[in-house]
Each structure stands twice: as structure tokens, then as C-alpha cells.
């Protein structure tokens, strides 16, 4: 038996201290610890540093254009040519679209994940297959979802609209949300579910009244991650949600989205408008951060009811 502290048994099963505990051995272990700790800190700094760099770039380039009017006004004609206005259409459009898509994805994910973990048996082939499907769907590029959504729309006869965008983004978010939820629901301890069953609860009741309540923080986190991905994706909405200067008032109207607004503002020949693109990116970042913080607060509040 080998332990880190170097105590070993010799052939007769007796414990003995052998040459393992030479000073160089201690030094080597200590050196390893120090080196790897340094590497780890470096890695973490690299990751956080990249984030800081990207955010700093956005803010630095977008600051001249970041005005309150940008957030609260819709674009006047010629906005993309340098005239006044704001991106309220894109902000609200994105919120509606991502919100609706996340809701759709949630309505689909939650039952599926509950089924996979509570109803399906340990070695269920269906569960294996569906989890595999989710992994595959995860890897589908968002532009393929956009293309598929476009085909679907043409097939149904829908025009570019909020609804079409919602459906496409819901398809995009589904694997993300499901996987994140699955990870959390899997971890519910068997003791808990067994206790519920032993008290005579049906599996449905256990699912809804026990498991969901227990994993609510995890579910909220999954919803947040999916929402973040959905609101920031351009390729899937490029051909499905359309674009307009107005705030959509019905599901069948085209909707502007923030990533597309950024994309279009970046593509104009006017440098002031390109600055606005960075400002819009800053708005999107702040939006995601705000939603992240809100949901963390919500998670903490609901964590009170979980059993640790």
C-alpha cells in the first residue's frame, strides 16, 4: 500500500518507513505543488484576463457612443447611416425572443429530464439514446439551426417573425438547457427519492413535489445559461426573425435582435455607427450580467428549500 506520506508495508505486511522519505522526495512533491499551483493561477488569470480584455475593448470602443438615448429610443430612419435613435427595438425584441424561446425550451426540457431521471430505469436504452441525441444536438452549429428553421418556416408558410425566431432559438437552447438540468437532477440523492416512494408517492408526485423543489436552483441556473446563449446568437436568427425598426407587438411580426443589430451596425461604412455597435455589445453584456445576477439571487432564495 502506497500512501503519499511514504508509509509502506513490506512483504510481511508490516508497516515500515522506507527510503521513500528522502529529503529530495519531499522537495520534489513540494516543487510539484508549487509549480502546478502557479500554473493553475496562471490559467485562471488567463481566462479571467481574456474576459476582462474583451469587455474592456467593447467598453473602450463603445463608450463614445453609449448614451441613454441608445437604450430608450428606437432607431429613426437612417439610424444605420448615422442619424439618431437607439436600439430599443433590438433590446426588447431580443428579450421577447430569448424569453419566449427559453420558455418553450423549458416546457420541453423539464418533462424530458424528469422522465429520463425518474421514470426511465437505470440502464434504459431510451435514456441512453436521448442523452446521446442531446449531445449531438449540442454540437449542431447555430447556423444549421438557422437553416433548418428557415426550411421549417418555408414549409409551414410562416414569414420571418418573432415566432419563427423563437422556435429556432428554442431548438438551439434545448440541448443546452437539457444537459445542464440533467446534470443537476442526476445528482438528487437516492435517499430522497426513496423516502418519497416509501411514503407512497407516485413517481409523478415525487418528480413534481420533491425533485423539482430540490433541484430548483440548478434548474434556474440551466435556464439562465440557455437564455444567455439564446440571446447572444446571431446565426440562428439571421434568416428567421427578420429585422425591423419597430418593437414587435405580435408574434407574427419581424423582430430586431441585439446580435443582429450589432452585426448590422458593424457592417455600415460609417465609423460612428460602428462605435454604436460596440455600445450595443456593451448593452448586451450588461443585460446578460444583470440577468445572471438576478437569477443568482433567485437561486439563493430557492436554495432555502433544498435539503442538503
Amino acid at each position: 500500500m502506497r500512501t503519499p506520506s511514504g508509509i509502506r508495508t513490506n512483504g510481511n505486511g508490516r508497516l515500515s518507513l522506507l527510503g521513500r522519505q528522502s529529503p529530495s522526495w519531499w522537495r520534489r512533491r513540494k516543487a510539484q505543488e508549487v509549480i502546478f499551483k502557479a500554473l493553475m493561477i496562471f490559467s485562471l488569470l488567463l481566462v479571467v484576463g481574456c474576459l476582462a480584455l474583451i469587455v474592456a475593448t467593447i467598453v473602450w470602443k463603445g463608450l463614445p457612443a453609449l448614451k441613454l438615448s441608445m437604450i430608450f429610443q428606437t432607431p429613426r430612419g437612417g439610424y444605420y447611416l448615422g442619424k439618431e435613435g437607439g436600439i430599443l427595438n433590438a433590446i426588447l425584441g431580443s428579450l421577447y425572443l430569448a424569453g419566449g424561446a427559453t420558455l418553450l425550451a423549458l416546457l420541453l426540457s423539464l418533462p424530458i429530464v424528469l422522465y429520463l431521471n425518474i421514470y426511465a430505469g437505470r440502464n434504459s436504452r431510451t435514456a441512453e439514446f436521448i442523452r446521446f441525441s442531446f449531445d449531438v444536438l449540442w454540437g449542431v452549429p447555430s447556423i444549421v439551426y438557422g437553416a433548418f428553421g428557415f426550411l421549417l418556416m418555408a414549409f409551414i408558410g410562416l414569414r420571418t417573425s418573432l415566432l419563427a425566431g423563437m422556435i429556432t432559438v428554442a431548438m438551439l437552447e434545448l440541448p443546452i438547457m437539457s444537459r445542464a438540468m440533467d446534470e443537476v437532477v442526476r445528482l438528487v440523492s437516492r435517499d430522497l427519492t426513496d423516502a418519497a416512494y416509501s411514503l407512497g408517492a407516485t413517481r409523478f408526485e415525487t418528480a413534481v413535489k420533491v425533485v423539482v423543489r430540490q433541484t430548483l436552483p440548478g434548474i434556474l441556473t440551466a435556464v439562465l445559461i440557455a437564455f444567455g446563449r439564446g440571446i447572444g446568437d446571431a446565426a440562428s436568427v439571421l434568416f428567421t426573425a427578420g429585422f425591423t425598426d419597430r418593437v414587435p407587438t405580435s408574434l407574427l411580426q419581424p423582430a430586431a435582435t441585439l446580435p443582429l443589430a450589432i452585426f448590422f451596425q458593424l457592417g455600415t461604412p460609417f465609423p460612428e455607427v460602428r462605435e454604436r455597435a460596440y455600445a450595443s455589445a456593451a448593452v448586451l453584456t450588461i443585460l446578460i450580467l444583470a440577468i445572471s445576477l438576478i437569477s443568482r439571487a433567485a437561486v439563493r432564495r430557492y436554495s432555502r428549500h433544498t435539503i442538503r
Partner: peptide, 29 residues
């Protein structure tokens, strides 16, 4: 393993933020 809990709770939302940035922004950067 190493980070104190406060650091971990502070860094996690930052990591999620990195995940939420639109890809156009990454491209431009």
C-alpha cells in the same frame, strides 16, 4: 480545490458571462 469560497462565487458569474458574449463580439475582438 484552492480558491476560497468568496473567490469562487465571484469568479463563476464571470465565467458564465464569458459564455454569454455574442460571437460577433468575439470575432471583432
Amino acid at each position: 480545490e484552492y480558491a476560497p469560497r468568496r473567490m469562487r462565487n465571484a469568479v463563476r458569474p464571470l465565467i458564465d458571462l464569458l459564455a454569454g458574449l455574442p460571437s460577433v463580439v468575439y470575432g471583432v475582438w
